[in-house]
Design a protein around this nucleic acid. Structure first.
Length: 549
RNA sequence: GCGCCCAUAGCUCAGCUGGAUAGAGCGUCUGUCUACGGAACAGAAGGCCGGGGGUUCGAAUCCCUCUGGGCGCACCA
């Protein structure tokens, strides 16, 4: 019995009670699924619901009376062994061991599919994240979104959504010229130009350019700059892609801003938005009236000098996503871009979309290290590449994925540097390795899965572990719905803890010369079910599930 | 000045969108091993959930208001 099954059964009982006239509610007031929670206190049963507290007012009765009527029907649910009414009207439900234990076998049989649902089926999602300028290496600021964005994409897919992960390359702006100038200066041993990019990587890019174009130093500045710009851009973008691959982050599409310009998409975007009636001319510039849709000021699309703005490219890019058939466009942006929310939503509205449905802008607080703010331009960056080499992909990805995006996060490098159980990733990975080790030992001792007797999983720690395994799918679905993959990570930590407690209390393999019994065999199913859930969950976070550590 | 985010144990942070005695890891202290992997488990100490009002059966959670942090307000990209 999973919490979902219980939830549906409770809802059915409610509907029956309404139909029988025992509760004065309209049928539409009964929710299809009743939320059941795992009570903190074990004396409160296996599962609890506060549905009586929520609906009694509408039903014109008091919560305890409501609960009494409902509990009589809940007792007849197959697998429910007891129903108690507590406090102001909580319903505490106890499930018998056989009904709870059956889950272990179901999980093993579902395998990698356990935890996938269809709650977001039909959603065609474009998820844009990272999108770092191709003028420098990825640093820790991008790291958070790389880890989180990839995990969100995976969680969405697990919930049935069709997701395209997309990286927008800002390769068209004036920063590309600054970038080329910076490399040019390095090649000629000149100081970093005003506002240019410092940092060793500029010199490294110079070497890349030099090996591709050995005569680059002989060219005049005017002739050299376009060559440098193209070659350094190519090398830097490759570096970014390689780093993301090392981080286990896969993008389906790398979208070039320059190609938008080359294809005339800016002009056609202005024309299309003008048709929608939201474009106006003022002071020689072309504007989009974003204030019609909640922005605090209108935005220039084409400057008085005829040059398009970055904002115009944003609008063209949005239209591209719309044209490509995405019903939901999700943007993951850093907190320093939160001012973009309104204008991006206004673009969607101007394009005729519903800004509450078709576009979603997620804002993440920036990660800091040792209190120092990181700046690409200042050159004191911590590169993603170095972080991976330093701490390992798994530790970095897990550390970033286990916190929600909207709270400030301070990473202590000295703490993260330690490969010890101070880092929660090891707690979860170790639990998985332990399940594998326990299975190897059990098999060596002659235990197999030839028998499964669910009612034998009756220890308190088994009840606890089963309930957490059972709520895993709804946690994944919730994480997808709210775009909060940290919920998965936290739940894995809960499962790992429950597993360790079970492992301490209940042996899988027989002790010494004792014979193998169905208790051992059945426990092996539960062990393997735990293994499967931990592996599935870690995979959603892009973290490996090691066989041994 | 206007706007967004944040404030919970000594530290880093959860808290399932309003529920029962507010949790985890680390740190501190005390226990459990002739060990299916001790990278574990059990227990203790540690909280005015930033302050003050309000909403209701019930608030860390929702509303208002202070305080204190982070960030943003371009015909830059």
């Amino acid at each position: 019995m999973t919490p979902e099954e219980l939830s549906l059964a409770i809802s059915a009982c409610l509907k029956d009670a309404v139909a029988a006239g025992e509760i004065a509610l309209s049928a539409s007031a009964v929710p299809d699924e009743v939320r059941v929670e795992r009570p903190k206190n074990r004396e409160h049963g296996d599962w609890a619901t506060n549905i009586a507290l929520q609906l009694s007012k509408q039903a014109g009765t008091n919560p305890r009376e409501f609960a009494t009527i409902l509990s009589a029907r809940l007792k007849s649910i197959d697998g429910v062994s007891a129903v108690d009414i507590a406090g102001p009207g909580f319903l505490n439900i106890t499930v018998d061991a056989a009904a709870a234990g059956a889950l272990a076998k179901a999980i093993v049989e579902a395998g990698r599919d356990y935890g996938t649902t269809t709650t977001l089926a039909g959603h065609v999602v474009n998820m844009e994240f990272v999108s770092a300028n191709p003028t420098g290496p990825l640093h820790i600021g991008h790291t958070r979104w790389a880890a989180l964005g990839d995990a969100i994409a995976r969680v969405l897919r697990a919930s049935g959504a069709e997701v395209t992960a997309e990286y927008y390359i800002n390769d068209a702006g004036s920063q590309m010229n600054v970038f080329a100038n910076s490399v040019y200066s390095r090649l000629h041993g000149l100081p970093v130009p005003e506002g240019g990019y410092p940092g060793q990587y500029i010199a490294d890019l110079g070497h890349d350019v030099l090996s591709a174009h050995p005569d680059i130093r002989e060219l005049t500045e005017v002739a050299a700059l376009p060559v440098i710009r193209a070659a350094a851009y190519k090398a830097q973008l490759k570096d970014i892609k390689d780093t993301l691959a090392d981080f286990g982050v896969a993008f389906d599409v790398y979208f070039s801003e320059q190609e938008l310009h080359d294809a005339g998409a800016i002009e056609s975007a202005v024309a299309r938005l003008r048709e929608q009636g939201h474009v106006f001319d003022d002071g020689g510039a072309v504007w989009l009236r974003t204030t019609d849709f909640g922005d605090d000021k209108d935005r220039v699309m084409i400057r008085a000098n005829g040059e398009p703005t970055y904002f115009a490219a944003d609008a063209a890019y949005y239209l591209s996503k719309k044209d490509r058939g995405f019903t939901e466009k999700i943007y993951l942006l850093g907190a320093d871009h939160h001012g973009y929310i309104n204008r991006l939503k206004a673009i969607a509205a101007c394009a005729g979309d519903d800004p509450d449905v078709n576009i979603e802008v997620l804002i993440g607080q920036l990660v800091s290290v040792n209190g120092a703010k990181l700046s690409k331009r200042a050159g004191n960056i911590i590169e993603l590449k170095d972080l991976i080499d330093w701490l390992g992909k798994d530790a970095v990805r897990y550390s970033l994925a286990r916190f929600p995006a909207d709270s400030p996060l301070t990473l202590d490098p000295d703490l993260l540097k330690k490969h010890s159980n101070e880092n929660p990733v090891f707690y979860v990975q170790y639990a998985h390795a332990r399940t594998r080790g326990a299975a190897r030992n059990a098999v060596a001792a002659g235990v197999d899965r030839s028998a499964f007797e669910a009612s034998l999983l009756d220890h308190a720690t088994e009840n606890e572990l089963l309930s957490y395994l059972g709520s895993y799918p709804s946690i994944v679905a919730k994480a997808a719905e709210l775009r909060e993959p940290h919920r998965v990570a936290r739940h894995l930590e809960v499962i790992a803890g429950a597993y360790h407690r079970w492992y301490d209390a209940c042996r899988i393999a027989p002790m010494g010369d004792e014979p193998v019994t169905d208790v051992n065999r059945t426990r092996l199913w539960l062990n393997d079910a735990t293994s499967q859930v931990l592996a599935n969950g870690l995979d959603l976070l892009g973290v490996s599930a090691p066989e041994r550590m």
